[in-house]
Design a protein around this nucleic acid. Structure first.
Lengths: 231, 231
DNA sequence: CGACGGCTTGAGAGACCTCAATGTAGGTGG
DNA sequence: CCACCTACATTGAGGTCTCTCAAGCCGTCG
């Protein structure tokens, strides 16, 4: 199963017809080059789409050039999920890597797939709240650790992480824009995390030596939006 | 019309039966004392509720006592709006003042009221994104100005602000917990904003002398989630 | 009156930023 | 194959914003 389907099927046990719908939707996927807009702020939000492969981010740019990533979109995440009839996008979404997206298979009300979408949406909100906490009350080292743990958690859901680590296509500069820091400071804090044996980051490969102890160190709590913890 | 109804009717022109439904729901309102939980993180989210009067906030508390307000809920805002069948609350909601809430009138799919709820939900997300930007990339003075402008905008929607200002039940400490600052620094930055003639804050009354110029000063852009700007 | 919560003020420290230079790896053209 | 370029990571020095700790002040309420 493709990572996107793995993720959604882990949110709600999907039927084989759902899996098939996801697979056939993915066949009609479209490639978006890195740095291109997937959604533009203030424009029509368009149909709901599903990220099949690659990373994207919701971004906001201030008039004086300051930039901040509001959230990241990974394989299996939905773009433009919304109940409103003619919604305008409240943020631009750009491709961080080459991204392949497809139209999200339509889900009849209260179907398994619809539930998966709803849970995905709830998770997205939970991640936004965590991001607020990160920016508001964590110091630089905690922000980095907490952020990487979140990414690890999310990639694991899609089967895209191994026990020891995962691949991230982010530069230190994009980390800085996500965490409200400067690239220079991200660099220094990564070094200190390396020195303290919490992680390695070579090329695009991140290795978390002991996720549990890192979580304890930065005070991260697991995120749950349903009664059943994910398998 | 009550402030809550004013707000919702401003999001979507409501029919008289919607207004009546809101009024009758409000009659069955319940009072929640200040500092009490309206929703508890990790618990069932319960029925969707509407704030009739008072202020509440979504709050997150870290293990070591650090605290952050994730968002504020004002009259006309909805609590627990969610498509998921058995959702768990991802954050605690506490009453900042005495709050009166009622069950949100049920809205049949695609009705006017349902649209209003959807737009309210979209706005809520937009405010979360603004909050992220605030915490991630604005300095203390900009955060305060931007935050007060947001509150002004939202209270205006419910008819709860006059041209010159509005009432806020917040202490400088709660401002600090919202903006990721310390109370001491909030105090000093408020003083500098006062000195520079941008605002007054006496008791619980905030006066913005020139909202437009303050908005320019802190680089705030208006928030839109629908094609039609609010009247 | 004393107690209390909230606001105000001061001095010093620390986290993070700015600016600027250097290092390094991959990619391209001659 | 080497020279060059670009993007990214790294390092240093100094500055500033925000924090910490502490004390004093003011209005309200019992």
């Amino acid at each position: 199963m493709a990572p996107a389907a793995v993720r959604l099927a882990r949110l709600v046990p999907l039927g084989s017809e759902d899996i098939a719908a996801l697979a056939s939707a993915a066949e009609k996927r479209r490639i978006v080059r890195a740095r291109r807009d997937l959604v533009t702020e203030g424009q029509d939000i368009g149909e709901t789409r599903l990220i099949v492969d690659g990373w994207a981010a919701r971004v906001r740019q201030l008039a004086d050039g300051r930039r901040l990533f509001l959230s990241f979109l990974l394989p299996g995440d939905l773009i433009g999920l919304c109940r409103q009839p003619q919604p305008l996008a409240v943020s631009t979404v750009i491709a961080l890597t080459e991204v392949s997206v497809c139209a999200a298979p339509s889900a009849s009300s209260a179907s398994r797939l619809d539930q998966a979408y709803a849970i995905s949406h709830a998770l997205e909100e939970a991640y936004l709240l965590s991001h607020i906490t990160r920016l508001g009350r964590l110091n630089a080292q905690e922000r980095i650790g907490d952020f990487l743990l979140e990414i690890y958690e999310r990639l694991s859901m899609a089967g895209l992480a191994s026990t020891d680590g995962f691949d991230v296509p982010l530069t230190q500069e994009s980390m800085a824009d996500a965490l409200g820091l400067t690239p220079v400071h991200v660099n220094r804090m990564l070094q200190s995390l390396r020195r303290e044996g919490d992680l390695d980051w070579k090329g695009r490969r991140v290795t978390l030596h002991d996720p549990a102890s890192l979580a304890a160190k930065v005070g991260r709590a697991p995120i749950r939006v349903t009664r059943q913890p994910p398998p």
